[in-house]
Amino acid sequence: MRNQYVKYVAVLGTICLVMSLMLALINSVTKPVIEATEAAMADAARTEVLPEADGFTLIDVELPEDSLVTEVYEADNGAGYVFMITGDGYGGRDTLKISCGIDAEGNIVDTKVLSHKETAGLGTKIMEEEFAGQFRGLPYDELEDVDRISGATISSNHFIDEIRSAFEAYEIVNK
C-alpha cells in the first residue's frame, strides 16, 4: 500500500518537475523576444499619434489625483507629448484606454483607442473618422465644440473627458 503512494507521488512529482524545467527553458528563449515586441509595439503606438517624434522618454509628472492620464511621454526632439489615458467607458469602469499626441503648440496631433468595451456599432463609432477626425489639430479651448455621436453620447463624452484630462496634464508638463 505504502509503495503505491510512493509511486503516485514519484510519478506526479517527476512530471511536474520535467514540465517546469521545460517551461523555464522555453521562457528563457521567448522572454527577450516578448519584451522586444512589446517595446516595439508600444513605441509604434506612440509614433502613430505623434509621427514627428523620433523617440520617446517616459517623464515623471505630478498629476492631480483625479487625472485619467496614466503615463506621459516626451518626444526626444521636442515635437510634443504623448499621453496614455485610461478612463470609464460605456462598457464599464476603466475600460476605455486611449493615447493622445499633443504637439508643442498645444494642438492635438492624433488620438487612438488602444482598448475598449464599447457597444459594437454604436459606441465603437468613437473610432471612426467622422468622430475621431474632429480631434486632429484641435486646441484645448475648442474641445467642447466637438460633435458627439448621436446614439452614443455617453461613449463620446467619456472619450472627450479623457482628452480633456490629456490637455490638463499638458498644461502641467508644459509650464
Partner: peptide, 8 residues
C-alpha cells in the same frame, strides 16, 4: 445589454 452603462 440593457444594463450596459447603467452601473457607471
Amino acid at each position: 445589454f440593457g444594463f450596459a452603462g447603467v452601473i457607471e
